[in-house]
């Protein structure tokens, strides 16, 4: 249980770092102006030719790399496997059958019970999470894109100061801001509302950082000048040209933001009292906090946790295509 609930939260900082590397390497290449926005080479094709030309790895190092990857894959997948197995068991079987293999297959009965429990409050939580994370990530990405684009493409006094402040924002953990936010929202009477979780979710300093870097290298100034000469306004230029050029970066920001909001647990914990406003993470946590005294809840927590990762998996599968082409764009040339 604990591993599952925390693993997505642990996951996002990791992936932050991983993708940090890509934009920085792009800067080093000094891709101002001529970057070409990732249209030329496709990722796989490019890497194939590289491998044919480059030095061949020894079978030993390939095997080594495979083993390392295999170990990590298992490390990440076993908790999910465990969760899946646990969600298929009936409550009595949970403790007294092997943890990593099936007993009687009760998944659908369990899901039925979960959904029926307390008039379907679980479905309400899932819907809330989708709203917070989906809408929040969409708008958050839009704002980050506008902000990053403006910082990259317009010259105005204080530009670097603003960017540095935003960069500083990347370093402040969201958890540290939750309590001050609560006190501020209390002043305006917005605690325990949809907005108290939604509004703070729209802010993504990392998104601004990423889109600025990407806009600087993938939106050529010449193109903007051309569209200005053709009479397009700044806003039209942004939405019809720049957004398209920045699209891979925007998908990345969207995914990060979606995952971050989906897993944001602490802010809703502090802001919300009304169970019907909870996101699924907080709802499951509330149940899990009472498993000792109300053991029936354990089953609901397990099945609920399993179902709650499905939207994340779907989002990733649908969007990872863009993501990959985004990070790889222009890196092999």
């Amino acid at each position: 249980m604990s591993a599952i609930l925390s693993s997505p939260a642990n996951g996002s900082p990791d992936s932050n770092q991983a993708s940090d590397a890509a934009p920085t390497s792009r800067i080093r290449r000094g891709g101002r102006g001529q970057a070409g926005g990732g249209h030329g080479h496709q990722g796989p094709a490019g890497s194939d030719t590289t491998r044919a030309r480059g030095p061949r790895e020894s079978p030993l190092s390939r095997a080594g790399a495979l083993i390392v990857m295999l170990v990590f894959t298992l490390y990440f997948l076993i908790p999910i496997w465990w969760l899946f197995i646990a969600s298929t068991k009936s409550a009595p079987q949970f403790g007294n059958t092997p943890a990593l293999w099936f007993a009687d297959f009760n998944l659908f009965e369990n899901i039925g019970q979960l959904i029926a429990y307390r008039d379907g409050v679980y479905l309400k939580w899932m819907l809330n999470s989708v709203l917070y994370a989906g809408l929040g990530a969409l708008l958050g990405t839009l704002f980050a894109a506008m902000c990053g684009y403006a910082l990259a493409k317009y010259r105005f006094p204080g530009r670097d100061a603003i960017f540095n402040v935003v960069l500083g924002g990347v370093l402040v953990p969201a958890t540290a801001l939750a309590l001050p936010l609560f006190l501020i929202f209390s002043q305006v009477g917005l605690t325990n509302t949809f907005w108290s979780v939604f509004l703070p979710s729209l802010v993504s300093p990392f998104g601004v950082y990423l889109t600025r870097i990407f806009a600087a290298s993938s939106v050529p100034d010449e193109l903007l000048e051309a569209s200005r000469l053709d009479g397009a306004g700044e806003i039209r230029t942004f939405f019809t040209i720049s957004v398209r050029l920045m699209f891979p970066a925007l998908v990345t920001v969207f995914l990060f933001q979606f995952v971050a909001i989906w897993n944001n647990f602490f802010l809703p914990l502090i802001m919300l009292r009304d169970e019907t406003l909870f996101p699924v993470t907080l709802g499951l946590y509330a149940w899990n906090s009472q498993v000792n005294q109300i053991p029936e809840l354990r089953l609901y927590v397990l099945v609920g946790a399993f179902l709650s990762i499905i939207p994340l998996v779907i989002t990733f599968l649908l969007l990872q295509r863009f993501w990959r082409s985004g990070l790889g764009a222009g890196s092999v040339k």
């Binding site: 502090i270 919300l272 009292r273 009304d274 909870f278 907080l282 946590y285 509330a286 906090s289 009472q290």
Partner: peptide, 9 residues
């Protein structure tokens, strides 16, 4: 309104 138990938040 119900939420997590006392010590859990």
């Amino acid at each position: 309104q119900t939420g997590p138990n006392g010590n859990s938040g």
